[in-house]
Design a protein around this nucleic acid. Structure first.
Lengths: 114, 114
DNA sequence: GCACGGGTTCGATCATTGTCGAACTGAGTT
DNA sequence: AACTCAGTTCGACAATGATCGAACCCGTGC
């Protein structure tokens, strides 16, 4: 039995970067950038963990990684490793617990899936 | 009797700078600055038009005016002249009509009056 | 009329932050 | 092992945005 598969399976539900949700300003600043807002929109649209590459267009990898970092630091997203692939996931529940209604209204405004 | 009073009374409900609410990014950017957020908090707390001077502390007039401009441009506030005195007012209803729940959640997070 | 008080505008400066390319890491593949 | 692919980190640079002081404007009151 493949030890590789079981090892990666163990990592699957490990939210390595489970930063707590930041201040309201951290969150608002994180969402106030057009590129990050688009990332959030795509994350909300898909509803689950999404590999980094599918979350941006028209910018370099390093720039995208920079924006991921800010979103994670604000607690808006978390990073998960699925099958060796890095994914980002929207921490909708956690954010809504701290700032009820905020993320919902933003996502609605930006056209992300309901 | 006093024509002065009646004349200023006429100006009272003139929202001279009735900018429409901007894009979601305009609004989020406007709210993502600590000083502007504090302005919004005080405006929400008082509930009505407030003279500019009562909306900030620790910064110069010109800087404050700059922040007012951004808030107005985003459609978050409007400028009213009451009795010759410039006041700022929160456009809570207009913003909520366009981005339901957004302003409420921010104000709740920032400790402004319910 | 003139001075005053409260806001705005202007221009310059300074800090923040978004952007990139190149080098590095770590996992999967051949 | 060497190679590839995807993301991150590291400097450095460019653009954006906050800040200030000074000048200006507009009501008010002397």
């Amino acid at each position: 039995m493949n030890t590789l598969a079981s090892r990666s399976a163990e990592r699957d539900h490990l939210a390595e970067d489970a930063h707590p949700v930041g201040t309201i300003q951290d969150v608002l600043s994180a969402l106030s950038d057009p590129i990050r807002l688009e990332m959030v929109r795509r994350l909300a649209h898909e509803g689950g963990p999404v590999p980094c590459g599918r979350l941006y267009s028209g910018i370099g990898k390093s720039t995208a990684s920079h924006h991921f970092k800010i979103l994670r630091a604000a607690g808006v997203t978390s990073r998960r490793t699925i099958d060796g692939q890095v994914h980002q996931q929207l921490e909708a529940g956690t954010v809504d617990a701290r700032y009820p209604g905020l993320l919902d209204s933003v996502i609605r405004a930006v056209g992300g899936a309901a």
